[in-house]
């Protein structure tokens, strides 16, 4: 089967998810082991810690045409590096202000804590996030329309 680029009849959003090695990525793995289904509209980029994610990555994702970006990590208190997720939270708050100034809808971005044991939660969050972005439609920033 030759895959085709998305056609005009429907909308497959382009969603980038940053996941930390120890918790949320492991939670995503558990969702897999548990065969919990969710839409294939996400591409995960693994980092060691949610604190590794530079807010610029998320802005760049939107600039390059992402319809949504999700930033995930360990619950507070669970960070493998103790407080990396607190740093992620601080950076996210600054980022969220900028995304809001740019008029990017709140449903298109988020920061979620998902533990290694929360396959269900991963799957639910992805399902909901994708659905919300689908409702909003394409964003297509960074292009001279």
């Amino acid at each position: 089967m030759a895959p085709k680029k998305k056609d005009s009849n429907g909308f497959h959003p382009r969603i980038v998810v940053f996941a930390c090695n120890w918790c949320s990525y492991a939670g995503a793995d558990l969702a897999g082991v548990s065969r919990l289904q969710y839409p294939a509209d996400i591409r995960v980029i693994r980092t060691m810690c949610s604190g590794r994610v530079n807010p610029a990555f998320i802005l760049k994702a939107f600039k390059m045409g992402a319809d949504g970006v999700l930033w995930t990590g360990c619950h507070f208190g669970d960070c493998h590096y103790m407080f990396g997720n607190y740093r992620a939270e601080e950076n996210y708050q600054r980022l969220a202000k900028i995304l809001d100034l740019l008029g990017i809808e709140k449903e298109r971005y988020g920061l979620e804590w998902i533990s290694a044991a929360e396959g269900q939660r991963w799957s639910r969050i992805i399902n909901e996030f994708v659905e919300n972005v689908q409702k909003l439609g394409p964003k297509k920033l960074g292009v001279k329309s």
């Binding site: 960074g142 001279k144 329309s145």
Partner: peptide, 9 residues
């Protein structure tokens, strides 16, 4: 991002 025509800041 601001070069986007469809921006609604």
């Amino acid at each position: 991002i601001m070069v986007s025509g469809n921006l609604d800041q």
